[in-house]
Simulated assay, not measured.
Amino acid sequence: MPAEGPLHQGSQRQVGPQSHPDAQDQRILEQRRDEQQTDAWKERYDARAGVEGTISQAVRRTRLRRTPYRGQDKTHLANVLSATALNIIRVDAWLNGTSLGTTRACHLARLALAT
């Protein structure tokens, strides 16, 4: 016997992603895509991309998310040392003319590039 009650009413409601967004959603999506083509949006995104890249580098190089220390003071010191290490890595790369890295490709894209 099916359960009844307020949680089970309205079984016709669609669950999951909608296959056909309504006109207002489509209009908003098109506006956002048009906005992404402007120079002002690209400048704002460049700043965000730089911050995201720095966070990614810190997480990969210094295991920033996994500190072995307990307590705020020791954790703060670990974060300061991680930031200092990143700065040293970047200065070294700049002095030696080494690029810091390229955009990584997913496994499928690397397979496509290999053929």
Rank of each mutant, 00 (worst) to 15 (best):
Gln14Trp: 15
Glu43Trp: 01
Gln26Gly: 10
Arg33Tyr: 04
Gly16Cys: 11
Ala47Lys: 00
Arg33Lys: 12
Gly10Ala: 10
Ile28Thr: 06
Glu30Gly: 00
Gln18Lys: 00
Ile28Phe: 07
Pro17Phe: 05
Gly10Thr: 03
Asp39Ser: 06
Gln31Phe: 03
Glu30Phe: 02
Leu29His: 05
Pro6Met: 15
Asp22Gln: 03
Gln31Ser: 06
Thr38Leu: 03
Tyr45Gln: 15
Pro21Asp: 01
Asp22Ile: 02
Ala23Ile: 03
Arg33Ser: 13
Asp39His: 06
Lys42Asn: 08
Pro17Arg: 08
Val15Gln: 12
Glu30Ala: 02
Gln26Cys: 05
Gln24Val: 10
Gln12Arg: 13
Glu30Pro: 00
Ala40Cys: 07
Val15Arg: 10
Arg32Lys: 12
Pro21Arg: 01
Arg32Phe: 00
Glu35Gly: 10
Ile28Gly: 06
Gln24Cys: 05
Asp34Gln: 12
Pro17Cys: 10
Glu43Lys: 07
Gln26Ala: 03
Gln24Phe: 03
Tyr45Pro: 08
Gly16Tyr: 08
Gln37Ser: 09
Gln12Ile: 08
Leu7Gly: 15
Ala23Val: 03
Ala49Glu: 10
Gly16Asp: 09
Arg44Asp: 11
Arg44Gly: 12
Gly50Met: 03
Gln12Glu: 03
Ser11Lys: 06
His8Gln: 12
Gln24Gly: 04
Gln31Ala: 09
Pro6Val: 15
Val51Thr: 09
Ser11Pro: 09
His8Ser: 14
Val15Ser: 13
Asp39Pro: 06
Val51Glu: 11
Leu29Ala: 13
Glu43Ser: 05
Leu7Tyr: 04
Gln26Asp: 00
Trp41Asn: 13
Asp39Met: 10
Arg33Phe: 04
Gln26Arg: 07
Ser11Arg: 04
Glu35His: 11
Pro6Ile: 15
Lys42Arg: 15
Asp46Gly: 11
Gln26Ser: 04
Ala40Val: 13
Lys42Cys: 08
Glu35Ser: 11
Arg13Trp: 12
Asp46Met: 02
Arg13Asp: 13
Ala47Thr: 11
Arg33Thr: 13
Val51Tyr: 11
Gln36Gly: 09
Ser19Arg: 02
Leu7Cys: 14
Arg44Glu: 14
Pro6Lys: 11
Glu43Tyr: 02
Arg13Met: 13
Gln36His: 13
Glu35Cys: 09
Arg33Glu: 12
Tyr45Arg: 14
Arg13Val: 12
Ser11His: 01
His8Gly: 14
Asp34His: 07
Pro6Tyr: 15
Ala49Val: 10
His8Asn: 13
Glu35Tyr: 07
Asp22Ala: 02
Asp25Ile: 01
Arg27Asn: 01
Ala49Thr: 11
Glu43Met: 07
Arg44Phe: 11
Trp41Thr: 14
Arg32Ser: 14
Glu43Leu: 02
Asp39Leu: 11
Ala23Glu: 05
Gln18Pro: 01
Gln9Cys: 15
Asp22Leu: 04
Gln12Trp: 02
Arg32Val: 05
Thr38Asp: 04
Pro21Leu: 02
Trp41Phe: 15
Leu29Phe: 00
Ala23Phe: 04
Val15Met: 11
Lys42Ala: 08
Glu30Gln: 07
Val51Pro: 12
Ala40Arg: 09
Pro6Glu: 14
Val51Gly: 14
Asp25Lys: 01
Gln18Glu: 10
Ser19Pro: 00
Asp22Gly: 02
